[in-house]
Simulated scan of single mutants.
Amino acid sequence: MKYKDNIQGVVSLQPDYLGFIFYERSKRHFEGTFPAIPDGIKTVGVFVNAEQSFIKSTVEEHALNAVQLHGDESASYCEDLRAVLGNDIEIIKAFSISDRFDFNNLNVFTPFCDFFLFDTKGKERGGNGILFDWNVLQRYDVEKPFFLSGGIGLQELNQVQSFLKSKAGEYCYAIDVNSKFESEPGMKKIKELKKFIELTKT
């Protein structure tokens, strides 16, 4: 999310999470203050290889409920960040998925992260608007819930519903949507989002 009026429009749909990118090289980089956001919606700060002191100050400034790490952060980084933030702030570690991704590499992260997020490996750190092959997740056997991300829009609704009913969808905690619902980076299409949310709940 980026623009205040647009944020309020999305808030009216009552999503579970709202993401704000605190990475200056992103086209969706957020600056300023949040409009009123109900307590039932968790706010997430997205960071890329950031100093932990910057993450901590940003969490405090915006009263964030969660942080998403979308860079090359190591397990030891996540361990240190957990100590810095405490247990009340959710830590979501993002991974770019390719056909040869080794899920065994995630085991060292599990003690320090609340969720994983699986996104498409692309030229940008997220927001590429491209699906990855969800069949890769048939190999997922780590007992940690994950967010499914990467190029998900209205056209992928049937695939999402099928995936959630599959064995691979057993640990799918949330569906992360972004660029497929934008008219420009950071500007969400409210009507299309509303339709997606309504249809995923049926």
Rank of each mutant, 00 (worst) to 15 (best):
A174V: 01
E60N: 12
K42C: 10
K27C: 08
F115P: 04
S149K: 09
E31Y: 11
D16L: 09
D39Q: 13
K167H: 11
K121L: 11
V160F: 00
S53D: 14
E60K: 13
C113K: 00
I21N: 09
F101L: 02
I37N: 05
L164P: 03
N128A: 03
Y17L: 10
A174M: 04
F116I: 01
R25K: 15
C78V: 03
E90G: 01
R82T: 05
F34Y: 10
R100A: 14
K56L: 13
G186K: 05
A75G: 08
R28L: 11
D141C: 11
F118N: 01
F181L: 06
I97M: 01
I97S: 02
A36S: 13
Q138M: 07
K27S: 15
S149M: 07
D39T: 11
I41W: 08
K167V: 11
I55L: 04
S12Y: 07
T58D: 05
I7T: 09
V46S: 09
K194Q: 15
C113A: 13
F95Q: 00
L69P: 01
G186P: 01
L199T: 11
E156F: 04
G45M: 03
A83F: 03
F34T: 03
L199F: 02
I92R: 06
H62P: 05
S162H: 12
E170K: 14
Q68N: 02
L148G: 07
R82G: 07
P38A: 02
V46C: 02
K93I: 05
I37L: 09
I37Y: 07
E51T: 01
F109Q: 08
L69H: 02
E170T: 14
E24A: 13
F163M: 10
L131W: 05
F115M: 03
N135S: 14
Q52C: 04
L131S: 13
R28G: 10
G32R: 06
F34S: 06
K93G: 04
N158Q: 15
E73T: 06
L85S: 01
E73V: 04
S74L: 06
N104H: 12
F112N: 10
K194L: 01
E198C: 00
D133H: 08
N135P: 06
V142I: 15
A63T: 10
